[in-house]
Nucleic acid binder design. Structure first.
Lengths: 357, 357
DNA sequence: CTGAAAGCGCTAACAA
DNA sequence: TTGTTAGCGCTTTCAG
């Protein structure tokens, strides 16, 4: 029976062991075991090499990452810091799961592993310092708060970082984001082209950057078309669209014929509440969301929405990080991804009677 | 060739730096900086101690985890291996996000961080060896396949591991799971008590362990009550309940008056398809799910379901792992969590006409 | 109370 | 082609 290697620290075979066993020097063993230099094939004789490899295999050797790290080689390890502090909810689930999937996939393919860092962000400058020696090569910061000191802190320490989904100005690091403004424009123009004139907007009550950008663009586009948006057409969900809000909106003297919401989660809630209120969609009310999350398909009727290519975005961010880590210079700019209008069944032309002023 | 600076190589102050700066020896600095022995308070003079601390603070010192690890101290780091290979879908989203939240929360409170490991599982024995020196103290394995070699491999290496959501027999490690059998019993008996006699079951087409256990218990309970389950009342979603299946089920000479599904996702699909088919729920058809995921609440009507305390389960698993890592012996048994029947609006007594044979 | 010294496992000059 | 050697930053006896 083979001798089972044990946990690190409990006598796992070391390079020294295999060197002794194979009758070569430590250095030779090292070179063989991790084809260090490209010319290593030449450096070590074929017989020696196979012998060493054989021993390494027999002993169940695997290099001690920690020791290797001490030599200031890259650790091939990414830090990931999610910034959705909210309790798990429908949005966070999908967003987080998608991002995680992308990051892990790309990292794995590139030979990196990813570890979570969730130290408290208050006192972020301090945290940043703490991260430095945690043994990661770079950080991916997911959706940090607008003025996150974590970003500036890490950046000032010269740690490679990429920011995802939070591309405010003056960001001290490269970032990846969807073009929220373009998406909001697509949504608004879609509705306008269908003939809607009275369009309401419902946003999350949290003042995230993307949320604001979507609302502002909505307002600009409406203005460009000479359409007025009454003050009370601008609502905030808490964070869902509740019956009262919708009833209020639809009970106005000149009710909206369409609603553009800041995300699919809110939109799908709105659809459901509307249906329970006996409002037919899209005949009596059009609703357009944002994200194209599973909520959009699951809604009944399925949502017209703005697709955000989250998976690709996260993959791109991860690749950028790895390139930075591997020495490439990447300017602290934002890579914008184009959103895409996905027309499903929750939007249509306003009915003649309602469209009439 | 140049060696690119890694995060930690960036000229961060070392213990040596602070020792020199404070005019003490390396050893003293070490003792002060990480109150090593319980009697360290005594070991170092108060003045020296404050001076060292002050310098450390001023220089922004933080210990190099890698170097410390070399000394075979615990690394305070957990490995996490998710086993949901499927593309991100609604179930995986919520399951994964909840587990991750629990694990990270508990780990953080205990001063551990968590890193993802997703090396290929085929060739698991090999992978296990590879994990050993990755610098983690223990592994949390989420929902491994029934005969995962990863589990046995890791176990044989004597690495502390805990398995979540996959408690088949002969497991070589402690595990945490919901009592699927009890849950299926609650669901089935709920339906029987409401007066249902013809109950169908729809499961995922994947043969996961929990799925099988739920179906088998459903059958046992039905048998205990002397109720027959025709062969064609046992269906598999692909993985959703499609129109045809439901139409088939309801079109049978003696159609079921209720359906118990293997999870909420399938149940919520079923509810929606039924509604589109013009079937009223629960008057004409009762549907009971499993999990109490967000899908259950989001369904219309909201689902009666079996609540699985996933967050607590994952937290418990993490705590167990940490206890193992810290030296406590934990027997390789399963800790079962009780499921709980949550009655909402998707279940009710069968209507008189349909209940009649 | 404090310092000197010996490594942890590995890599990379530099020798041979 | 191979071996020797000097650390990486830290902890920890063991002497002063």
């Amino acid at each position: 029976m083979e001798v089972l290697p044990t946990v690190q620290g409990k006598g796992a075979p070391t390079l020294k062991d295999i060197a002794r066993e194979a009758g070569v020097s430590l250095a030779t063993a090292s070179v063989v075991v991790n084809g260090s230099r490209s010319d290593s094939e030449v450096r070590v004789g074929e017989t020696t090499r196979t012998r060493v490899l054989e021993v390494a295999d027999r002993l169940g050797y695997s290099p001690n990452v920690m020791a290797r790290a001490l030599k200031r080689v890259r650790l091939n390890s990414l830090g990931l810091s999610f910034h959705y502090l909210n309790p798990v909810d429908a949005i966070a689930d999908h967003y987080g799961a998608t991002v995680l999937k992308a990051v892990i996939g790309v990292a794995y393919d590139a030979g990196y592993n990813v570890t979570h860092f969730h130290k408290p962000w208050h006192d972020a400058r301090q945290s940043a310092v703490g991260f430095r020696d945690q043994g990661i090569d770079g950080f991916l910061i997911i959706s940090p708060a607008p003025h996150s000191q974590l970003v500036s802190g890490l950046a000032s320490l010269n740690i490679p970082i990429i920011v995802l989904s939070s591309s405010f100005n003056q960001l001290a690091a490269p970032s990846v984001d969807v073009d929220n403004s373009k998406g909001a424009r697509q949504a608004t123009e879609h509705l306008v082209e269908l003939g809607h004139r009275r369009i309401a907007h419902v946003m999350d009550y949290q003042t995230q950057f993307d949320t604001i950008s979507r609302r502002d663009t909505f307002l600009s586009v409406m203005a460009e078309h000479g359409l007025m948006v009454p003050e009370n057409f601008l609502q905030s969900g808490v964070p869902h669209v509740d019956k009262d809000m919708l009833r209020y909106l639809l009970g106005l003297p000149n009710p909206p014929t369409a609603i553009f919401t800041t995300n699919d989660w809110i939109a799908s809630r709105a659809v459901r509440v509307a249906r329970n209120l006996g409002v037919r969609i899209p005949e009596e009310l059009s609703i357009v969301g944002f994200d194209d999350s599973p909520d959009a398909r699951a809604a009944d009727p399925p949502l017209t929405t703005i697709r955000q290519p989250l998976l690709e975005m996260a993959e791109t961010a991860t690749r950028m990080l790895i390139r930075m880590i591997e020495g490439e210079f990447i300017a602290p700019k934002t890579v914008w991804f184009d959103p895409e209008l996905v027309v499903r069944e929750s939007s249509g032309p306003p009915s003649a009677s309602r469209a009439a002023k």
